[in-house]
């Protein structure tokens, strides 16, 4: 991979201090984002995908706390910055948020206010990250709306979010994320709330924008179809760890972690035969506060090795290298 590494996450650990005890939401997560490439983060609820996104942007809500690791912007470059070392409220972090790293939410209304027109909100975001005049920022807002495929943007700029359909709102959400001209985009389940034909259009849009602008895209989803459609590399997460990392084709053809294998077999398919049963994974994802000892997946694992998997945790993956964090990969 010759692409520039835009962001490197290393050994990221996040805890939630709860009354019932400490919930270790992330336990040493590492990966890289490269310019012009899409990294998929896939996993079930509680795996830590959204916590990872919020940690990178330093918008983690209390009682969540980053307790270890580094989040390096422009790693290896002269201006390398560790986002964890920065004050989350500082002017500089605010500039990075939106200016370097844009965020697209599942529900675009999270990012939009009901009280202001779409245009005013984008103009505000544009001006926060540039010194354009109001009039120039307005032109830029219209240009952004056009870029994300909103018909008649010079009219829509005056619309309030509630006047738009779900698909158009998500396009506005994407325009908002692009307002500061970021080179890294984090999309957290960007199409989960959308209908399937709208989802296809929004995915097309994301792909086009990424290619045109050479953006490093981190796409968080629970949907293996979206992963297959969009990603270059994939990190599979389970209970706060990356359990497998692989180029997308490898992940689907030769999955190495038992969890990935089981997950792929459990996905309902548009190509199924009538009344086809699915392979299942026993049990359910445990609560992150009740993490099983050893490898957290061992109680549900088809390849569980007593005395090994329930004793120690398998070694974490070296960032950027395909593989599985599993004792099957480690000679006994």
């Amino acid at each position: 991979m010759a692409e520039r590494t835009s962001l490197a996450v290393r050994d990221l650990a996040v805890h939630f201090e709860m009354e019932q005890g400490t919930v270790r939401a992330l336990e040493g997560v590492s990966f890289d984002l490269h310019a012009g490439r899409t990294l998929g983060i896939v996993g079930e609820s509680g795996c830590g995908k959204s916590v990872t996104a919020r940690s990178i942007l330093r918008i983690l809500d209390r009682p969540g706390r980053i307790v270890g690791g580094r989040i390096l912007l422009d790693p290896g470059a002269p201006g390398e910055t560790d986002l964890i070392a920065m004050n989350a409220e500082s002017e500089r972090m605010r500039g990075i948020r939106g200016g370097r790293i844009g965020l697209i939410f599942q529900e675009p209304m999270t990012a939009l206010s009901v009280h202001y027109t779409v245009g005013n909100q984008i103009i505000e975001a544009v001006r926060q990250h540039s010194d354009l005049s109001k009039a120039a920022a307005r032109d830029r807002a219209i240009e952004l709306l056009r870029e994300v495929g909103i018909p008649r943007p010079e009219l829509r700029v005056e619309a309030y979010p509630f006047q738009l359909s779900g698909g158009l709102r998500q396009r506005v959400g994407i325009a908002m994320a692009l307002a500061g001209d970021p080179d890294i985009l984090i999309a957290d389940e960007p199409t989960t709330a959308l209908d399937v034909t709208t989802q296809a259009q929004v995915l097309d849009l994301l792909r086009r924008l990424q290619q045109e602008k050479g953006i490093a895209l981190m796409l968080i989803t629970h949907d293996m179809g979206v992963i297959a459609e969009m990603c270059d590399e994939v990190a599979v997460m389970y209970l706060g760890r990356v359990v497998e990392y692989a180029p997308v084709l490898e992940l689907f053809t030769t999955p190495r972690h038992p969890y990935t294998r089981a997950l792929l077999r459990a996905v309902p398919s548009i190509l199924a035969t009538p009344r086809q049963r699915l392979a299942t994974i026993g049990g359910a994802v445990p609560h992150p506060g009740a993490r099983p000892a050893g490898c957290a997946f061992h109680p549900r694992c088809a390849d569980f090795m007593p005395g090994r998997c329930d004793v120690g945790a398998p070694p974490p993956l070296a960032p950027g290298h395909a593989g599985a964090s599993c004792f099957l990969e480690v000679p006994a």
Binding site: T197, A200, L203, M224, G225, V226, L249, F252, I270, L271
Partner: peptide, 17 residues
Amino acid sequence: LLAAVPAPDPLRRGRQM
């Protein structure tokens, strides 16, 4: 509708709706 569903297979990528 059928063309819009992303299939869990990277080799089927890029079907046009």
